[in-house]
């Protein structure tokens, strides 16, 4: 799964640590999501979407199977 988290975070001017604090997760988790090494659960994906004021499908895009 691909995502726009890094671009959205940079647009807000937030560091990974700041985004992690806002989402109440570790910086390691934010980095893993941004690099595509970890796909977040639905509640965390909703949390990310809510934080950026967007829908889940505009942030997370299905990758090649």
């Amino acid at each position: 799964m691909n995502n726009q988290v890094r671009e959205l975070r940079s647009a807000q001017g937030w560091s990974q640590a700041e985004l992690a604090e806002r989402l109440d997760v570790s910086r390691q988790t934010v980095n893993a999501i941004e690099t595509g090494k970890y796909d977040p659960s639905l509640p965390l994906a909703f949390g990310i979407a809510r934080l950026f004021g967007l829908s889940i499908e505009s942030i997370f895009l299905p990758g090649e199977e």
Partner: peptide, 8 residues
């Protein structure tokens, strides 16, 4: 209580 990646 830790986050989902830490739990994994």
């Amino acid at each position: 209580d830790q986050d989902e990646l830490e739990r994994r």
